[in-house]
């Protein structure tokens, strides 16, 4: 049972990691906690659902398609809500409040439209086949998720460390005024980062929706609560920290449910969150956060 539980934990953890990645990237570069982020998670799942159902896409087509749509929506929301505040140099809490209001608005509209009924992918979208190795059971969708998360994280690391664009993003994260002086197209990079973050959130939504076959508007809100725990634990704005903290949270939750009590499963993340804030607010691995704070 331990091996199976670890596998469950790694699976949940990699999706937490993927979700937290976009969330923390947004904070690290743009310097705001964007609470609409969870909405991109729901959006990604719903777009993929409709793409497979009505546009008859295969899942490997629907995944990038849904991620791209979520990314584009993220650019629009950022421009509409945070653009005016950035230009007015409003205090950081204004952006927190504005995205908070927008979250409520967006979820309510989405619920009015789609209702809170749970939807699922058409059964033909993905073969639910499974392998069994010495009692350890792995389904195809689980393999897909872990593979996708590994390649997306790898791709993002490569983009940030090895490309000129990555250099520009990192420059913006350090200091936007200086970055502008050095010739970085700040507006363009802001849009790019919004897009990447939105797409990461959207992709995470598709995968969760696929694996547990349950899609509904508020799925992003519950995920956001886990997301907070992960990015604080990893250190606000710390990308490597988000990945490690995401995996750690997934595994800890599963082990808690398996060996302690399943009623404590959801408390794990929040207890870690509160303890981190109390004892080590820069996050377990954090350096960047210390400066940001």
């Amino acid at each position: 049972m331990l091996a199976q539980q670890l596998l469950n934990g790694i699976l949940a953890g990699s999706v937490y990691a993927l979700f937290a990645l976009g969330f923390t990237l947004m904070f690290g570069v743009l310097g705001v906690i964007n609470l609409t982020y969870g909405f991109y998670f729901s959006t990604g799942a719903f777009v993929a659902l409709h793409a497979t159902r009505y546009l008859h896409m295969q899942i490997w087509e629907a995944l990038p398609f849904a991620a791209a749509i979520a990314g584009l929506i993220a650019i629009v929301i950022d421009e509409l809500l945070l653009g005016p505040l950035r230009r007015a140099k409003a205090p950081e809490l204004s952006s927190l409040m504005v995205t908070l209001g927008a979250t409520l608005l967006l979820y309510s509209l989405m619920t009015a439209w789609f209702t809170t009924d749970i939807r699922r992918f058409p059964p033909t979208v993905f073969d639910g086949g499974a392998f069994e190795i010495q009692g350890l059971r792995i389904t195809l969708s689980q393999i897909l998720i872990v593979a996708a998360v590994v390649s997306i994280v790898g791709g993002l690391a490569w983009l940030l460390r090895r490309t000129k664009l990555g250099l520009a993003i990192r420059a913006l994260a350090e200091n936007d005024d200086v970055a502008q002086l050095m010739g970085v197209n700040v507006g363009g990079v802001v849009h790019l980062v919004s897009f990447i973050s939105g797409a990461l959130g959207g992709a995470a939504g598709v995968m969760i929706g696929l694996n547990y076959n349950a899609i509904q508007p508020y799925m992003g809100e519950s995920m956001m609560l886990k997301g907070f725990a992960v990015i604080i634990l990893g250190g606000l704005g710390d990308i490597r920290g988000a990945v490690l903290a995401g995996l750690a949270l997934g595994i800890l939750e599963t082990l808690t449910a398996g060996y302690v009590a399943s009623s404590m499963k959801d408390a794990v993340g929040f207890l870690l969150l509160v303890l981190t804030l109390w004892f080590r607010p820069v996050g377990l691995f954090g350096r960047i956060a210390a400066k940001r704070a």
Partner: peptide, 24 residues
């Protein structure tokens, strides 16, 4: 602890507290 940090931390911590209390 949180008020020594930037305002974002208080906001997130208070969301966390709400959830912990609910589970409690």
């Amino acid at each position: 602890p949180t008020l020594r940090l930037s305002g974002v931390y208080l906001a997130i911590a208070t969301i966390g507290v709400g959830e912990v209390l609910r589970i409690f």
